[in-house]
Amino acid sequence: MSADTLIPEEPEAPTNRPPSMERVRSWLQRPYARKILILTVVIGFLLLPLAWLLLAAMNQTGAPASEIMKDIEQTVFVFTLVSIPITAFVFAVLVYSLIGWRQISGDEPPMQDSPAIRTNTIGVILWTVASSLLAMFLVVWGLVELAQITANSYGSISADEQPGQKSSEIINVTGQQWVWTFEYPEHNGLTSDILYLPLDRPVYFNVTSKDVIHNFWAVELGVKIDANPGAITQTGVTANKLGTFNVRCAELCGMHHAFMQTQIQVLEQDAFDSWVRESGGKKTS
């Protein structure tokens, strides 16, 4: 006798639960369900322009002027789009709770209780899955973009292998209270207090500070790194847009922190060369 025959066959589970589609349909027929969904969509569409408005505000002074800044803006754009649905849903429930479901005012506690919903397995699972997927998406997007930006700012190149070939430019950035100094070691140690950059050529920044922590922020280029006393931090960028942009200090550095800003001039190669020739060797202290 085989063991199988000893075990009586399991009776099939009773199938008195209606098909899932039927349950979804009956849920949708509740008076509030569709209204909240519609409200979510409406609020979502109202929030949608934000994705462009944020970029418009960021682009006021000529950004993006580099591939890095373009990556940053793309990230902001995508994150805005991704967070709109969940924000819209939460706002929809808040709004509907104020205008849709019943309300009571007055001094005495309401006599009637609301339905005792202790939990809702489907809702909880849906929320957890959705928020986990969203977080996963954000993380993956962020990691990929970070790798991309690191490559674009040449952060993956170690310090002793900083390329010295002609096509690149090395600039030593020094912060001190409350000025920036840019030194061009490949051009006879030429120094400037305005950051001149050649168009479409990679630039490497070695950033340091003489006194306290500053933060070298080339706004429209999307470059930002701390200038630390006693350490050199490295970053880089390839400016791909002609024009005048801003360097600001983004780390409180004392009394005149607000005024620790200067200009970036992105020049054509010819203009850059002639600027180097004109001021070559001459040092501005």
């Binding site: 429930v93 709770s97 479901w101 019943r102 506690p109």
Partner: peptide
């Protein structure tokens, strides 16, 4: 997000005593 879900779920179909 769990905490937001709990808040949303508690609002859900509740009769708000708007104090």
């Amino acid at each position: 997000g769990f905490l937001v879900l709990v808040a949303i779920g508690t609002f859900w179909r509740g009769t708000a005593w708007t104090r």
